[in-house]
Design a binder for these strands. Structure first.
Lengths: 356, 356
DNA sequence: TCCCGAAGTTCGATTTAAATG
DNA sequence: GCATTTAAATCGAACTTCGGG
């Protein structure tokens, strides 16, 4: 009785039978293995043709089982809905593609339970590395031990992490914030309001540090009455509304300020809404600066001046780290974790202008 | 010489050796296979303990090779950077998670070459189904034959597709457009400008049809001078600018209109920029309506009235279709492709108001 | 000895048929 | 014969070894 296969897939056996050569020969030819050097061009040509004709596509399960490589990298996004995360994702996928890796994808949806379950699933599938695109969600440390145990190279993008067994890629938040306030200062603004981000998030605190350090060096006084504090824990879905509320209060109290700087773009857009609703014209009556350069920033009216995080580059950097770690692992070399800090960039658009 | 393993993973063999039972027994116990019914509770207990202690995690490659199931679904996004696509993606991932599938992810980046290469990679990895999240990019028909050949259930989300071997999920574009214009009409608008989408995209033409059919039924005259046509092929990255330009021209020609309706949110935001720059107040001097309800729509000032596509639901529907198709395949039942059309919803925000 | 190709082993888990007390 | 357990075949590809000309 002829072999019966459940799947309609054509295997190396079929190629062998059809071409009249043995399985081994076919394997050698199709993989261009060293031994293929000694094979007659006719044989090679013929086998390749048959493979092409039958639409042969090697079974990765078999291959992976044998070689214990999956050619797959796990990519965990804390929130796919966040444009910041997706820009990084774009960079990651782009680089993975060039390196011929495919990704196992997971959207943690800001939920720690999901995060852990997905981690298990990725481990089961033997991903060769893991890239986590963070946002505000605090990533638990158990993650680290799990991965360390299995010797899977891991990178976290967009989050400062003290742990030493996980690599990281992030922007220089402090420098970025400094660039933003410096921009306002050079335009001539002295009465600047701030929306200060949630203190629970280390990265965002760094932005505040950048502001303070510039203020000190420029002898600029920061008026505490102009500093709006976001609650320590904010669901990112509410950033906009909370920022809007804070700004509305500020306006209601008739504080004077000629510019406003927010810890991220969404908060800046929330502030813009409050200003617009109050009848204030941007930028003539109030300049606004954000941080991130997320897509909606450029779509606002007026378009938002902001600090751009090189999101695609961050994604690519993460891939570079894991691919070299994988290579090192294959060659049994040691590979130490790396922590890359990239420079942001000031993008001047129409929401900032010299004060009247 | 004892067995030497490259990976540090513990296998079923280790459990067998450590527990003193055979490989088969261990497998039966750990999988709760039918035969496990006849096994002594002591044996089961013991084996499970050993597995637990050694931290056994079955090798999915081996499992998949044997069972020819990957428990993986391919998800191809034409553009991850598009917030419309990511909302659908959220729905897909959410449902896949519930069904215990993991996804192989690919971002085609609006590039047909990539699309095809990714298709190959997914085939190699034996995804059990494929979900494509479309946008404007025209998906080639070779895709279909490829998948049909391999009997992999496929769904396209957000695109009308004539082919019968691929399922589809999309919104009722015609009804949606009708809801939008009806909203303006009921507010009292009679001089309505339109930004009409690229004609090359069938779905978007349907929106225009919806408008025309309503106009006919309500005896509303559509002034050709108020109809702005997008060029037939627009890179989505330029939708905003092109829409802005068109609107600026309209304003320059001093045409009178009290409302403007765009074929999607990004175009609507482009129009809003043109209006704002011209000093026109929204909505007092001009109401604006979009389509999609993509994130930036709610963040604009004023927030945009629009037609919401149930994006997450669309993603879930796609997963439902493929999971039942997979189930049918396993049970060797026939499963016909389905084409689901979902209803959009009018979301009234502050960009529309009764005309002065 | 050189070249080409065949045969058999391995990877880890599942499952069937068979063997043990 | 029955209740338990196990050896052996299988999945598909890759690599090592071996043999014929």
């Amino acid at each position: 009785m002829p072999r019966q296969r459940a799947t309609g897939m054509v295997t190396i056996r079929d190629i062998a039978r059809e071409s009249g050569f043995s399985i081994g020969t076919v394997s050698i030819v199709l993989n261009d293995a060293p031994l293929a050097r000694y094979m007659s061009p006719n044989t090679k040509q013929h086998i390749k043709e048959v493979a092409q004709r039958l639409g042969y596509s090697p079974n990765q399960f078999a291959r992976s089982l044998r070689g214990s490589r999956s050619h797959t990298v796990g990519v965990m996004v804390i929130d796919v809905t966040d444009p910041f995360c997706t820009s990084i994702l774009r960079g990651i996928e782009s680089s993975l593609y060039k390196a011929s890796y495919l990704s196992n994808f997971a959207d943690a949806q800001n939920d720690l339970g999901r995060f852990e379950r997905y981690l298990e699933m990725m481990l089961e599938r033997r991903v060769e590395a893991l890239i986590v695109i963070a946002n505000w969600m605090l990533v638990d440390i158990t993650l680290l031990s799990d991965l360390e145990k299995h010797r899977i190279p891991t990178v976290i993008v967009a989050r400062e992490l003290q742990a030493d067994c996980v690599s990281s890629v992030l922007v220089d938040n402090q420098a970025g914030a400094r660039m933003a306030i410096e921009h306002l200062y050079e335009l001539g603004h002295r009465d600047i309001a701030f929306i200060r981000g949630p203190k629970a998030i280390g990265d965002i605190e760094l932005r505040w540090n950048g502001i303070r350090s510039f203020a000190r060096s420029a002898h600029l006084k920061l008026d505490p009455k102009l500093i709006l504090e976001m609650p320590p824990i904010v669901d990112t879905n509410h950033t906009f509304e909370v920022a809007q509320k804070l700004t509305e209060e500020l306006i209601k109290h008739k504080r004077h300020f000629s510019a406003l700087m927010a810890y991220d773009d969404i908060a800046a857009l929330g502030a813009m809404r409050a200003l617009t609703k109050a009848g204030l014209r941007i930028p003539d009556q109030c300049s606004v600066v954000g941080f991130d350069d997320v897509a909606p920033a450029a779509l606002a009216s007026p378009p938002l001046t902001t600090i751009r995080q090189p999101m695609e580059t961050m994604g690519s950097a993460a891939v570079e780290i894991v691919t070299s770690a994988i290579k090192a692992g294959l060659e049994k070399r040691e590979f130490s974790t790396s922590h890359r800090k990239l420079m942001p960039e000031l993008v001047v658009r129409q929401s900032t202008v010299r004060p009247e």
